[in-house]
């Protein structure tokens, strides 16, 4: 069942120099129980996509296109209705567990607050459920943890608490924005295993945002690569990582250091992405692309579809005959 269907989503933000396009024609869909990864550099629009889904865009933003979540159109929905969906049906885990928890309030208070608001549970019911949730995310001694404050937990444990909080109202969709970037690899491994378990056990759909393709490879089913507010390539994670077609995707894969195998010089992508609102009509990556032709910048790049999943926006296709 398709849980989320995004069609031709455009978002413009009000900046000092007028409106600037932050998301440009994004299409994506997500099935129940699927984990979709969104990858890209900072400023590529990954977080903006998540904030749009949550209805948390800055004031005076312009949004067009369609965003259908579980049969409900979210573009143009009234704020009151959105408040019911946000936190209850769509919830979010942020990058930094140090700042997304209130430092002075007990874990119990923070965990039960929105269960009482959204689900109408009594204080005791909510507390019972909070203990179950902390057990689920493997916080040792959940009963006692409810009365502790965030500073008594390590970074990894805090992120587990944030995940428990996001799960409190049994959401259908969990948005996770770089949830492991601030953590050590050993702790990250634990959190990734937790996300996988939640999906397998509860059929939770997850949109996982990160720039780390290693993390994407281990966790996600499908991958969307974004650049300068646009999609550049999407497909099944395995296909996309093993056979990337867009020069940008190939570039980031080549720039990654390899933990095993022989030592090599890291191949960096030279140059910088365009500023917000200064994307060209054609390919936004053209100035950094090794296969760049004069047409790349000036004409709208058509979508190339390889199969029902794998597609990319590049019509040079330097890899023709290569694969």
């Amino acid at each position: 069942m398709t849980l989320l269907e995004v069609k031709n989503l455009n978002v413009e933000l009000l900046t000092k120099g007028g409106y600037a396009r932050a998301l440009d024609g994004i299409n994506l869909s997500l099935e129940s129980g699927e984990i979709l990864g969104i990858a890209g550099e900072s400023g590529s629009g990954k977080t903006m996509t998540a904030l749009t889904l949550l209805g948390l865009l800055p004031n005076h933003s312009k949004i067009s296109g369609s965003l259908k979540f579980s049969g409900t159109e979210l573009v143009g929905i009234d704020q009151k209705r959105m408040r019911d969906i946000r936190g209850r049906e769509i919830s979010m885990v942020f990058q930094d567990p140090m700042t997304s928890l209130h430092p002075m309030l007990s874990i119990g208070t923070q965990l039960t607050e929105h269960m009482i608001t959204h689900l109408g549970l009594s204080k005791n019911e909510a507390r019972e459920k909070a203990i179950d949730l902390l057990t689920e995310v493997r916080i040792p001694d959940p009963q006692r943890s409810l009365d502790a404050v965030p500073s008594q937990f390590s970074g990894g444990m805090r992120q587990r608490i944030c995940i428990a909080m996001a799960l409190a109202c049994d959401p259908k969709l969990l948005l996770a924005d770089e949830p492991t970037t601030a953590l050590d690899v050993t702790v990250q491994a634990g959190i990734l295993n937790l996300f996988r378990r939640l999906r397998d056990k509860h059929g939770l759909s997850i949109i996982f945002i990160t720039h780390d393709l290693g993390v994407m490879s281990s966790l996600t089913d499908r991958l969307l690569v974004m650049y300068a507010g646009r999609e550049v390539e999407s497909g099944k994670t395995s296909t996309l990582l093993q056979n990337p077609r867009h020069p940008y995707t190939r570039g980031i894969l080549d720039s990654l250091p390899d933990i095993s195998g022989s030592k090599k010089k890291l191949k960096a992508i030279m140059g910088f992405p365009p500023e917000l609102g200064k994307q060209p009509l054609g390919c936004a990556f053209h100035n950094r692309c090794p296969f760049n032709t004069p047409q790349c910048e000036s004409h709208v790049i058509p979508l190339t579809t390889l199969d029902s999943h794998h597609r990319f926006y590049c019509d040079i296709d330097p890899l023709k005959g290569d694969s």
Partner: peptide
């Protein structure tokens, strides 16, 4: 530490967890 690093090989294997803090 080495086993905990996720590899971008598209094979979908989860990194190995190191238990304890």
């Amino acid at each position: 530490l080495i086993e905990a690093v996720p590899k971008p090989d598209g094979k979908g294997s989860l990194p190995v967890e190191l238990s304890g803090d």
